[in-house]
C-alpha cells in the first residue's frame, strides 16, 4: 500500500539545512493499522504530509497503491488525495459555515460525484459514526467528540484505501478520545481500511497493530504490537 524508499525532506534556510526526514524506508501493507510515534521535531508531521500526498520529498521515492507520488505535480496530488486518501485531523478541521451534511459531502464533490450518489454516501458515513440525525447541524452546535466523528465520516465517505489520522484524539478528553479511537479501529477491522495514525502519545500509539518510532528524521524502531 505504502512504500517509502530513501525519503529525504530537507529544508534549507540559507547556510543551515534541516533534515526533517533523513533517509526513511517504510512499507505498509494493505489493511494494516500503523502508528507513527515521535516527539515534536522528530519528523512525524513531515512524514504524514508526504504520506498524505500534501507534499513531495526532496529525494527518494514514494509509491502509494502502486503510483509514484514523489514526482507528482499539484493536480496529480489533488487527484490522488481525492481518490485514495481520507484525513482525520487533531483540530477536526470542519468548515464552520457548512452543515454536517455539507462537510461530509465535500470530498465527494471534489471527486465529481453525482448528487444522488453523494447523498447516499454521506448518509451511510454519518450513520456509521452515529450522527445521521445531526446532519442539518453546524459544527459549532456539536461537542468536540461529535465534531471528530463528523470528520471521521468525512474521511470515510469517499471510501478511501488509506486513512491518515493526525493526533485524532489530541483535542479530546480521554473518554471521548477512546471512543474516537474505537471508531478508527473498527474502520480498520470491519472495512479493511489501511490506517496510519500519527501521535506523540504511547498509550494511543500502542492501540495499533504496529508502531514505528521516529527520531530526528530517522526510524529508530519498528515493532509489531503483541495483542
Amino acid at each position: 500500500m505504502i512504500e517509502l524508499k530513501d525519503i529525504y525532506k530537507i529544508y534549507s534556510d540559507g547556510d543551515s539545512e534541516i533534515r526533517a526526514l533523513d533517509g526513511i524506508n517504510l512499507r505498509v501493507s494493505e489493511k494494516e493499522f500503523v502508528s507513527i510515534i515521535g516527539q515534536s521535531g522528530s519528523g512525524k508531521s513531515t512524514a504524514m504530509n508526504i504520506i498524505g500526498c500534501l507534499d513531495v520529498p526532496t529525494s527518494g521515492s514514494y509509491f502509494l497503491n502502486g503510483e509514484d507520488v514523489s514526482r507528482m505535480g499539484e493536480y496529480e496530488l489533488s487527484d490522488i488525495r481525492s481518490r485514495t486518501l481520507g484525513f482525520i485531523f487533531q483540530q477536526y478541521n470542519l468548515i464552520p459555515k457548512l452543515s454536517v451534511f455539507e462537510n461530509v459531502e465535500l470530498p465527494l464533490i471534489y471527486k465529481r460525484m453525482e448528487p444522488r450518489e453523494r447523498k447516499e454516501r454521506v448518509e451511510r458515513a454519518l450513520e456509521k459514526v452515529g450522527l445521521l440525525d445531526r446532519y442539518k447541524k453546524y459544527p459549532k452546535q456539536l461537542s468536540g467528540g461529535q465534531q471528530q466523528r463528523v470528520s471521521i465520516a468525512r474521511a470515510l465517505a469517499g471510501d478511501p484505501k488509506l486513512i491518515l489520522a493526525d493526533e485524532p484524539t489530541g483535542a479530546l478528553d480521554s473518554k471521548t478520545g477512546i471512543e474516537v479511537l474505537e471508531f478508527i479501529k473498527q474502520l480498520n477491522r470491519e472495512d479493511g481500511t489501511t490506517i496510519v495514525l500519527i501521535t506523540h502519545d504511547h498509550g494511543i500509539a500502542y492501540q495499533a497493530d504496529r508502531v514505528v518510532k521516529l527520531q530526528d528524521g530517522k526510524i529508530i524502531s519498528d515493532e509489531v504490537v503483541a495483542k
Binding site: 498524505g52 500534501l54 499539484e74 493536480y75 489533488s78 487527484d79 488525495r81 481525492s82 481518490r83 486518501l85 484525513f87 478541521n93 470542519l94 468548515i95 465535500l106 470530498p107 471534489y110 471527486k111 468525512r154 469517499g158
Partner: peptide, 16 residues
Amino acid sequence: TREIGIRKSLGATPWD
C-alpha cells in the same frame, strides 16, 4: 486560509 487547506486536503484542485 485554513478552509482552503482543508479543501485541498480533501482533494480540491487549484482550479476548484
